[in-house]
Write a protein that binds this DNA or RNA. Structure first.
Length: 222
DNA sequence: CCAGACGTTGTT
DNA sequence: GTCTGG
DNA sequence: CCAGACGTTGTT
DNA sequence: GTCTGG
């Protein structure tokens, strides 16, 4: 599954990665971003990639209570077209979550691991998004990260992992209107480009953050 | 038909 | 809005 | 996902 | 032990 991630690259770096020009407010670095918090999200507007802020935890447009979002922060790739909560968003509102890495916990000892890509400082988790009208008429944009089977590196830690979209497929994921093309991207990322580091518990202390930052920089330079 | 849920993970 | 269970 | 709370009454 | 908030 995917219940935490890190995005600590600068806003400019994120925009450069996706070749985006539009300006929005800078966001804080976050080494331990959880459901309920806001994160930069890449989506499309008039067939161009664009960046905006959304809250993690999908609130479907028909929801009566935004609290449902706390339950819908992941969705299974295998059944995404069968679920009333997800099928429309999957067909019409796919997005990407720029991350520097994500976390998985191994049971039963709750040992945390940080997982990132060796050759890419920023990479993309596949997600879907929704727009919800609050009772006082505001718009709340939310997203849910898609999960899939683990690859070999991760299966020792956990039985699910987030769906990672390779850089070459990022535009296709967001812009394609051919459902088969999109479905062809629903497969686990190959494990040879992944790097996994074991962390102290809890993960959100300065030592862990520095360890993570160093690991990402070193792997990208290698 | 209506009422009520709409999800994942992991554990039993 | 749509699906499932009663 | 984890961390932290886990309550009621009455008032704004 | 279970629910809620981040």
């Amino acid at each position: 599954m995917c219940g935490r991630f890190a995005i600590f690259s600068s806003f400019q770096a994120i925009k450069n990665h996706y070749k985006i020009l539009k300006e929005i407010d800078e966001l804080e670095k976050n080494f331990n971003l959880s459901p309920g918090q806001y994160s930069p999200i890449i989506t499309q507007n008039q067939n161009k990639l664009f960046i905006t802020k959304m809250r993690w935890g999908l609130v479907p447009f028909w929801a009566k209570d935004e609290k449902i979002g706390y339950k819908l922060f992941n969705c299974r790739s295998e059944t995404i077209l069968e679920k009333a909560s997800f099928k429309y968003a999957f067909q019409k509102r796919r997005c990407l979550v720029p991350v520097n890495g994500f976390y998985e916990w191994k049971k039963p000892e709750k040992q945390p691991y940080f997982i990132h890509l060796k050759k890419q400082k920023i990479f993309s988790l596949a997600a879907i998004w929704e727009s919800w009208k609050t009772p006082i008429g505001n718009t709340l944009n939310t997203f849910s990260i898609i999960t899939t089977k683990p690859n070999k590196s991760i299966q020792n830690i956990h039985n699910r992992m987030p769906l990672i979209i390779p850089q070459k497929d990022e535009e296709k994921w967001i812009l394609s209107r051919n459902l088969q093309d999109v479905q062809s991207l629903l497969s686990p990322y190959p494990d040879e480009n992944m790097s996994i580091i074991k962390l102290d518990n809890p993960v959100n202390d300065n030592l862990s953050n520095n360890l993570i930052r160093e690991a990402v920089i070193i792997d990208v330079r290698r």
